[in-house]
Write a protein that binds this DNA or RNA. Structure first.
Lengths: 188, 188
DNA sequence: CTGGTCATGTAACCCGTTACATGATTTC
DNA sequence: GAAATCATGTAACGGGTTACATGACCAG
């Protein structure tokens, strides 16, 4: 029941269509939640029925019509209630970690390749998050922006996202180095 | 379909009962996966039926009997297949991040308190992971252990877990500082 | 003319969570 | 005497993933 709150939180930044939200919630920029497009369209419909968001149909030329959503007063109240409720602890669930946990009992080569790939993905995300942060803070430095900026929520979550990806990259490269060294040693 | 692989990976370390696994997969030490006891008991039964793990009933005095599980040859083969398959990217799903994303539109006080609580939890996990790491490497230093240790998978995932919790703690305290400063400024 | 982007959905299935159930032993 | 620990499950529900479906426009 938290996807709806993630959607409401995302819509605080302005009007967005399901498609735009889907891009943000899919792999790419999802720095605070992840969901697939199908889920979003369904949840947006529900939210609209319940009056937590309001949809506005916008006809475009040369493109399909889209529906732009905004948070209503009731939506804001729902967010407030959510913020006050105790947060459930967040858990890790990662295929790659499971594979590393089992790396002593399986072919290390395959795991190494996937660690490399994950490091590449992390690298790309670090760059995207960096650009996002710069765009959000504009010409101000970070200190100033965090002290006086009007909307810092997305900035803080984006900082966390970047930090997470940096560590992911660091850990992956370290693990690759360790595993390769052991492979080389065992071959002799 | 990845919980089964997480279970198989956990059982590589030796024989464990559902109860012991539940403790590890619940909040506490779950450094590479998380699951509730009910899920584990169910999945262990399935794995046993499929011949991927073997259960052994152990009667105890003064305590209920327990079932200890070990990975079978077929279980190892299944792990190997899993390791070779492409890993799906891991995604963040965290209530607290959603609340921070929305912090400009809701009462900041409640979010601050939850950030503090999360920092405390992270602190506790950092200590637990530290102890685990020391126990795993014994009297060897980290370099030596990672070069020559017989089982390094759990060590690597534990390192990742500790790193993650350290950053969680750092980010939470930073966010609290920023939000408190803004609260103080707006009160004037 | 193939593939990518824009744009929105429905339906089936399965995994994960919540709730419920039991019972003995040890610790405070 | 209450609460925590040891020990293992069943059942219902709901959210998330996978698969399926449609259709117009634009770039190479």
């Amino acid at each position: 029941m938290a996807l709806r709150h993630a959607l409401l939180a995302a819509l605080l930044d302005g009007e967005y269509s399901g498609y735009q939200l889907a891009k943000a919630f899919d792999a790419g920029v999802a720095n605070f939640w992840h969901a697939l497009p199908q889920q979003l369209y369904l949840e947006l419909s529900k939210l609209e029925k319940e009056g937590l968001v309001a949809g506005r149909r916008v006809v475009q030329e040369g493109r399909p019509a889209k529906r732009l959503f905004t948070v209503t007063g009731a939506g804001l109240a729902e967010l407030e209630r959510f913020a006050l409720a105790p947060a459930k602890p967040s858990f890790i669930r990662d295929d790659l970690l499971v594979k590393v946990q089992a790396v002593d009992a399986v072919t290390a080569g395959a795991v190494i390749e996937q660690l490399r790939e994950r490091a590449r993905v992390a690298e790309a995300k670090i760059i995207v998050f960096g650009k996002l942060l710069r765009r959000m803070r504009g010409d101000r430095d970070e200190e100033t922006f965090l002290r006086a900026g009007e909307r810092i929520g997305p900035y803080l979550t984006c900082l966390r996202g970047r930090q997470f990806e940096r560590e992911t990259r660091a850990w992956c490269t370290r693990a690759v180095a360790v595993l390769r060294a052991r492979e080389a040693a065992s071959r002799q």
